[in-house]
Nucleic acid binder design. Structure first.
Lengths: 218, 218
DNA sequence: CCTACCGATCGGTAGG
DNA sequence: CCTACCGATCGGTAGG
């Protein structure tokens, strides 16, 4: 049994707001409840894996009953997709912002530093969670869902290439930029497996170490 | 229905060998059937994930009936553990071999090359499969199982440190060896996500590119 | 969102 | 290894 939730209205009107009925649950409450559901789901997907997480686990984490998540998402699969899709959209938007905030003519090494630091924020920062799920649950998506996330993901990754190519031309990056990009993303993405906020390194320090590993001293 | 398996003996003796009964199924057939089961399971675990793979999927891949895998492994979880454990034992043994085969006084860069090349063989080579499962299904193990695999895994990873420390002393590795090791394993392990034997790079070429990315030109 | 429920599936087992 | 089976669980839904 689940503890009864406090009624927000003291009278005996029904729970649903009056007026014309909503077409979907997307924007009830500005979508805040929906997002809360995604955050709990993402945390569980990361710890236990998507397939091993039940919709009942998610409902319980929300203090809901077992059928209620389906009021917000039409299926468990749609919930996973929403987590990845919105996670990737946010990551791409943030990356766009930091790149545009760079002074014109910023050198490639500094540009890569900013990209790495921002990537760590997305992966390991206080409001992270969606992208790590994407990295480790890719196989749980249907083919159509993968296409939907790939388009954003490809654009995100492509934005790293100019900096890598410039470093290669300057002789500061010894590997081919295309392969270097794959290795670098691997190294950074893997931090999800071992990074701890209680560990010896801050995200700034990790950024510095990564830069030293991949790019020759100028 | 499942196609009947060809009888290996032409007479009408029972399938089970005569003589004293076995305590376990481990060494019937020299364990060949058991290993076959592990290989099919590993392939399915990698494609679909452990939790999404049913013991019926595995049985079907073997041409067995649904209850039969439990003749060889007492549970689905024990099967996963066997895959990871034996995979890690094999990897550690192979790594030990190639290190011992090195001529005394081999320089650190060459030593790292050999370690990377061997790691690729384990991850991506023709007889691979067990270690990739370990990398992506760690969370599906119980705490006790994790300890059992960790002991071998830690020894495997520790063998990379002397080469990294020597490179750092020589000024060819700019990052701290402990962090460099984590990044390098991340970069290499991530290849499981994108490497294809039909792609443009051979394992030798990938080894060379990795070395150039991590280690400064001598 | 809750209530009450269903059909399907899953890991595992007893006995041979 | 197969046969025949069970208890538990799971994603999802109709109706309010």
């Amino acid at each position: 049994m689940v503890a009864a939730r406090t009624r927000t209205s003291a009278d005996d009107t029904p729970h649903r707001p009056r007026g014309r009925p909503r077409k979907s649950a997307d924007d009830v409450d500005g979508g805040a409840r929906r997002r809360e559901l995604m955050e709990h789901a993402a945390r569980l997907f990361l710890v236990k894996g998507y397939a091993a997480t039940t919709t009942r686990d998610i409902a319980a984490a929300m203090g809901m009953h077992s059928g209620s998540p389906f009021y917000y998402f039409k299926s468990k699969s749609a919930l996973l997709y929403a987590v990845m899709r919105e996670g990737m959209e946010l990551a791409a938007a943030r990356q766009q912002q930091v790149l545009q905030a760079l002074a014109p003519g910023t050198d490639a090494r500094e540009c890569l530093r900013v990209l790495i630091r921002q990537h760590f924020e997305i992966l390991l920062g206080p409001h992270s969670g969606f992208i790590p799920v994407m990295l480790y649950e890719w196989r749980s998506l249907t083919a159509a869902q993968r296409r939907g996330v790939s388009s954003i993901k490809d654009a995100y990754e492509a934005q790293w290439m100019p900096a890598l190519q410039a470093l290669a031309r300057a002789g500061l990056l010894q590997a081919e930029p295309a392969v270097a990009r794959l290795y670098i993303f691997g190294a950074l993405n893997w931090t999800v497996q071992w990074f701890s906020r209680k560990g010896p390194y801050s995200l700034d320090e990790l950024t510095e170490q990564a830069l030293r590993l991949f790019v020759c001293a100028p």
